[in-house]
């Protein structure tokens, strides 16, 4: 049965990567363009007026957040659109009828989201290098946060897709929840600039921990303790993975 798991997983992952690479103009190119605009507007035009933040040029300070923002939105978008598409056109039944266990199906879709997050992250990092001269402070922390964040938001996208009944349902969460959380997650500012009350409010935002841990990996500075950030990220992954498995095992959204 190990061949079943391995080949089944590879098949889903290959299919997922092929899917988003075939439409790279819609999936890979837009984050690169958006990031260029962020760097030009916030980094150079406005950033040069702002001076340093946390001891770094503003454009260098926002690089980690912008990379992670692209990773978050793309890993989420990949899983939510792919899994919902498979529900909508009913080709999820190809997998449900097969002997693939649910954990392999989940791992396949999440890895597809991870793959897109990683590819987009690399592209955006390449773009960032044109505008800033950042050096990686800690490769291990950078790599770990990068991967774990993509996994976390792939899982979140999967859960969104399970509950979605219309195409509106797969855009509501990214628009009204994910985007505000990302923008308020310390991408563009240090929370130390906020009044004390809003600093505490910010701490309930999980994106804050990821952005700061990633910023630590790239720049060596963070508003949050690294161990707390990793603890929160891992806890979210465990909870979301367990809940995804529960939904798949119950057949929520895919079986009557």
């Amino acid at each position: 049965m190990k061949a079943l798991y391995r080949v089944g997983f590879q098949t889903i992952l290959y299919k997922e990567i092929r899917r988003f690479m075939l439409i790279a103009v819609q999936t890979i190119l837009p984050p690169a363009i958006t990031t260029i605009l962020y760097f030009i507007i916030f980094g150079q035009l406005i950033g040069e007026q702002l001076g340093d933040m946390a001891g770094f040029r503003y454009i260098d300070f926002i690089v980690p957040g912008l990379i992670l923002m692209a990773v978050i939105s793309n890993s989420y978008a990949n899983t939510v659109s792919s899994f919902y598409g498979s529900k909508f056109q009913r080709y999820i039944e190809e997998m449900l009828v097969s002997p693939l266990p649910n954990w392999v199906i989940l791992a396949g879709f999440v890895s597809g989201g991870l793959a897109r997050g990683v590819i987009v992250g690399i592209v955006v990092t390449g773009v960032a290098l044109f505008f800033s001269d950042i050096q990686i402070y800690s490769y291990s922390v950078t790599f770990a946060v990068f991967i774990l964040t993509a996994i976390l938001f792939s899982l979140a996208g999967f859960i969104n897709a399970v509950y979605a009944n219309t195409f509106d349902d797969i855009s509501i969460i990214p628009t009204f929840v994910l985007t505000p959380l990302t923008y308020l997650g310390g991408v563009f500012y240090s929370i130390n600039l906020l009044p004390e009350f809003w600093q505490h409010v910010s701490l309930v935002n999980p994106v804050l921990y990821m952005v700061n841990a990633f910023r630590y990996g790239l720049l060596g500075v963070s508003d949050i303790s690294l161990s707390v950030a990793f603890g929160i990220i891992l806890a979210f992954i465990v909870v979301l993975a367990a809940y995804s498995m529960y939904l798949l095992n119950k057949g929520v959204g895919i079986k009557s």
Partner: peptide, 14 residues
């Protein structure tokens, strides 16, 4: 691709 992927879901090498 549809047929080959289906075989993959049953663990059949590519």
């Amino acid at each position: 691709a549809i047929v080959v992927n289906q075989a993959g879901y049953y663990g059949m090498p590519r």
